[in-house]
Amino acid sequence: MTAYVAGDQNAFRELFARYAPLLARAVRAQVSSDDESRDLVQQTFLQLHRARHDYRRGEPLRPWLFTIAYNLIRDRWRAQGRRREVPLEQAPPPVETTTPADTLQEHRRAASVRAALEALSADQRMVIELHWFAGVPLPEVAATLGVSLSAVKVRAHRAYERLRANLHLRNEV
């Protein structure tokens, strides 16, 4: 980031390569389409570009990126007038394919995970996505969401309870 602030364009490409996949995974779980997710990731990097002169050497960059993305997602929810929460009963069914057994099991697992995550509230889903799939430690998740660590733990606890119940329903755990 320091190199990028100094004007090195290749450093920006490196930042993009390093963080865009993580961001895309966290963002995609919060929005309804791939297009929307791509747009939000693009807007996140645009905001990072605008804020680059605020960056202080040595500061961790990941919380910046996730906070920007989370703020943009909140704006998007607001613009859409609701949070994207789908009751488990309405979540998409597991994908049925004629691929080999292990691939089929992968598909089923992915579909179950997606369905179980969809059934969480947006705040709970964000905590799980950031912590489990983007590898962000809970204190950093708290900083990203602008809430206390204990609030994040409560969200995680409720999310785990709900996930457990939902996944038990589907005989996945």
Binding site: R13, A24, R25, L46, R109, A110, R114
Partner: peptide, 28 residues
């Protein structure tokens, strides 16, 4: 069991597509 399921679930989720770096650089 839930922890193990979540740990293995990440790899099962498909990777979402990324925006094009060229488009982004154009915007910048």
């Amino acid at each position: 069991d839930l922890a193990r399921f979540l740990a293995s679930a990440g790899s099962a989720l498909p990777a979402p597509s990324l925006p094009s770096i060229q488009d982004l650089e154009g915007q910048l």
